[in-house]
């Protein structure tokens, strides 16, 4: 059995805004083992980024973790002081954000920023840290890194900045890397390079990755396990094979069905999921997917139970009870 690196139990995060309590994450549980690449997928607003930030104790105000427990290597970290968190962040858990510009200092040279981070986390001297920075930039596919370290963030394209962020995160050799949509804003060719880079990283180290994305292609290509979120909850969880070949939840099935087919010759009509995601200011008490689900029935007005299909595969839907399935299919 692989070592349990992270476990999240019944995580709830709300934003207390003028309009009311926005229940962004409403009871999420999952785990990540050493060496795994876990994909977290779902529509925008489903709570992926809020979950990721909560894992790093970086929930911005007016947000608050209102319930739950997060364990890292078996130790609860939910109630650690800021000082203790600073030791974990970067060293053991590192994060790459959706928008790389906000995370880089615009008036400091790239090399200087990287050297600072590397020295802080790895205790290397200036010269060693600089050559490490150059080496990491080379590894993320930045050409002429010796010259590039003397440039400022605005002299890098969006894709290059994102690679710098990844290089910085990796240079600290974290045990868990949380990457929030690291390639969403990039061209597919550059996305492919970064995904390959993450793949190579797995071959050389035991770093676990939590990869947040809404691109099912990315998930299929790089993840070992998948968590499907909707309306602030986990709808389904399983290995990539479970999710892509044996999806159980109507939302997961809907997502997969909405992708265009790859065969040529004829044009098949796309099959969207009708409707729009729920409003989390006043979320429905039952299944979050109820309004859009083609199988919705009366029972769905109550929160469904979680059903285990196999030790790796579980989903949250009343259809698992079996009774109605015959009728709706």
């Amino acid at each position: 059995m692989a070592e349990r690196l992270l476990s999240v139990e019944n995580l709830k995060v709300s934003f207390f805004t003028a309009g009311g309590e926005n229940q962004a994450v409403r009871g999420v549980s999952f785990h990540i083992d050493a060496g795994e690449t876990v994909g977290i997928v779902g529509e925008s607003g489903s709570g992926k980024s809020v979950t990721a930030k909560a894992l790093m104790a970086l929930t911005p105000p007016p947000g608050k973790m209102v319930a739950g427990d997060i364990k890292f290597r078996g130790e609860s970290v939910s109630r650690l002081s800021d000082k203790d968190w600073r030791k974990i962040r970067g060293n053991q858990i590192a994060m790459v954000f959706q928008d790389p510009m906000t995370a880089l200092n615009p008036v400091q040279k790239i090399g200087k920023q990287m050297v600072e981070v590397i020295r802080r986390h790895r205790g290397l001297n200036q010269t060693a840290a600089l050559s490490e920075a150059i080496e990491m930039l080379r590894q993320v596919g930045i050409t002429e890194p010796e010259r590039r370290v003397n440039q400022y963030p605005h002299e890098f394209s969006g894709g290059m900045r994102q690679r710098v962020m990844i290089a910085m995160a990796l240079s600290c050799q974290p045990e868990l890397l949380i990457a929030d949509e690291p390639t969403t804003a990039l061209d597919v060719t550059i996305q492919a390079q970064i995904l390959e880079l993450l793949g190579r990283l797995k071959e050389r180290s035991n770093t676990s990755i939590a990869l947040i994305t809404h691109d099912l292609g990315v998930v299929a290509q790089v993840c070992t396990r998948v968590i499907v979120m909707y309306g602030g909850m986990v709808m389904e969880e399983g290995t990539v094979e479970d999710i892509f070949y044996r999806p159980k939840h109507p939302y997961t099935k809907g997502l997969l069905r909405s992708l265009p087919k790859r065969e040529s010759g004829f044009k098949e009509r796309l099959v969207p999921i009708e409707g729009t995601p729920p409003n989390l200011l006043d979320p429905p008490p039952g299944c979050p997917f109820m309004e859009r689900c083609p199988h919705a029935m009366e029972t769905c007005a109550a929160l469904p139970k979680v059903t285990e299909v196999s030790p790796s595969h579980r989903y949250m839907c009343w259809l698992a009870e079996g009774a109605e399935e015959a009728r709706v299919q």
Binding site: S258, R269, V271, I273
Partner: peptide, 14 residues
């Protein structure tokens, strides 16, 4: 747009 909604808009454009 989200994947599930992209398909709605594409169908409509068609």
């Amino acid at each position: 747009l989200d994947v599930s909604v992209q398909a709605q808009v594409i169908n409509m454009l068609e």
